[in-house]
Design a protein around this nucleic acid. Structure first.
Length: 425
RNA sequence: GCGUCGGUGGUAGAGUGGUCAAUUACAACAGACUGUAAAUCUGUCGGCUUCGGCCUACGAAGGUUCAAAUCCUUCCCGACGCA
């Protein structure tokens, strides 16, 4: 993996770059589309590609449970398995520590409003008995499968092993995504754990990379030729993840520790910025962290975001984003437009025979009307989610692409102002 | 014409004397969704409301009762059977 900065945004942390992977280049900043279970829900890879997506991110935890990372390895790796030719990434399962753990069964999400009750409770009650599918142990996390209830213990090493079997170009360290509702003491403990895990991830990754290249050189006889041709030996890049919740000191400490982490001269290839955020805290956290992370390595803001978040992140030095919103919102009937999100099932669209956006170049807008898409949703037709996802993915991906172009053209701030002026949240 | 069964809110369909403005499902309407436990979830769904209630409602009209969607009478409508 190689990262080249093409241009920097003046008076900010922002930059334009090209991230090269064994499966092609990623023009950054870039929006990574989420394909958790080795599929971008409701879309086939051609639709994903035509919508403009450059890279797909799948999930370690989900693919480990089903169909199993060994099967993906046998298939020739994630990209081959799902027929996605371009770059791929896998998340480590760290987010599931949060979503199936502290957030399980609660009204708590990746991004919270500052008014959420969970943020306003000064001293939190002991909810250690609350039902959850993820429990954090000394060495790793035990997950109770949401599919069949079976118990699985994921350690940092295990996550990396799975991710090596999955074979994505970029993989992430196994971290603990914490809730901003946790107190400082807990954030410190969790951060310490995340850092210890990061080290173990890096060690395991270095070990597996070494094994990979030696068996390639030796042409290990137990490896059949098919496997050799199936990218199994391609190098993978490992990103370390910065956590630290809402605390400036913890965020900075984490950025420092993760960026300096080094085993026999080997470091992380890039960085993820993780955590569940109160919306208002996101930009400060990103800024704190990116001022410390080494400039020459790529940064990925995990699980973000909305259009306004993308501008914020890019201006503050983020190179990669991933988010489920375009596809999830699409499937649930919410569509992005330049003036804000619309709910396509609203009565007013039943007889609206214009595209979702008149000047949108996506397949859905070029071929279908709001009335038709509304009809598909009302009729619960499968094509509804597909057309909506195509539009939303295209909207977000091309927004990031336009932001990139505006940086190259030195019109970033004008573009941002113009866009956000029209876009009602 | 006689007999039997039935007519409940947008639909289907519970309820068979008080706890019923009426279970439930669907439809409808609105909202939520940020490293996917999610083609999911939440709320509203007779009218008015100072949110305590008030009014109008279970085919129609009468009646019994402290109290009726629920019991009685007549009528209207539907299905089936017999003429």
């Amino acid at each position: 993996m190689n990262f080249k900065i093409e241009k920097k945004l003046e008076n900010s942390l922002g930059r334009v770059g090209i991230l090269s992977t064994p499966h092609g280049d990623i023009q950054t900043p870039a929006f990574v589309t989420v394909g958790t279970k080795a599929t971008v829900k409701s879309l086939n890879p051609e639709q994903v590609s035509v919508a403009g997506a450059q890279v797909v991110l799948a999930n370690t935890y989900h693919l480990f449970l089903q169909p199993g990372d060994e099967i993906v390895a046998k298939a020739g790796g994630l990209g081959k398995f799902m027929n996605w030719q371009g770059p791929t990434m896998t998340d480590s399962g760290g987010f599931q520590v949060f979503s199936l753990g502290a957030a399980y069964g609660k009204d708590m999400s990746k991004v919270l409003k500052i008014t959420d009750p969970s943020l306003m409770i000064p001293e939190r009650f002991d909810d250690s008995d609350a039902p959850r599918l993820a429990k954090i142990g000394q060495d790793g996390v035990s997950f109770k499968s949401h599919l069949d209830g079976s118990i699985h213990y994921i350690t940092p090493e295990k996550s990396i092993q799975i991710q090596h079997n999955l074979g994505a170009d970029i993989i992430f360290a196994f971290d603990e995504c914490t809730s901003p509702a946790e107190d400082v003491k807990y954030q410190e403990e969790a951060l310490d754990r995340t850092h210890k895990w990061a080290k173990r991830c890096l060690e395991e990754h270095i070990k597996l990379e070494a094994e990979k290249s030696s068996s390639k050189v030796l042409g290990s006889p137990r490896e059949d030729s098919a496997r050799l041709s199936q990218n199994i030996f391609l190098p993978q890049a490992l990103f370390g993840i910065v956590q630290g919740g809402r605390e400036e000191s913890l965020r900075k400490k984490s950025a420092q520790i993760i960026s300096e982490m080094n085993i026999d001269g080997k470091e992380f290839d890039g960085f993820g910025i993780g955590g569940s955020f109160a919306k208002e805290d996101m930009s400060t956290a990103v800024k704190w962290v990116n001022e410390i992370l080494p400039e020459e390595k790529p940064r990925h803001l995990l699980g973000i975001g909305e259009p306004e978040d993308l501008f914020m992140g890019i201006e503050n030095g983020v190179d990669l984003f991933d988010c489920v919103l375009p596809t999830r919102l699409g499937r649930n009937g919410t569509l992005y437009t330049k003036t804000g999100k619309i709910s396509i099932t609203n009565t007013k669209f039943r007889e609206d025979f214009t595209p979702v956006e008149n000047d949108c170049e996506c397949y859905s807008c070029k071929n279908y009307t709001k009335a038709y898409i509304a009809h598909l949703f009302h009729g619960k037709e499968m094509l509804a989610g597909t057309l909506a996802s195509i539009h939303n993915l295209h909207f977000i991906v091309s927004l990031v692409s336009k932001i990139r172009q505006s940086m190259l053209d030195d019109t970033f701030y004008e573009f941002k102002e113009e866009f956000l002026k029209n876009y009602k949240t």
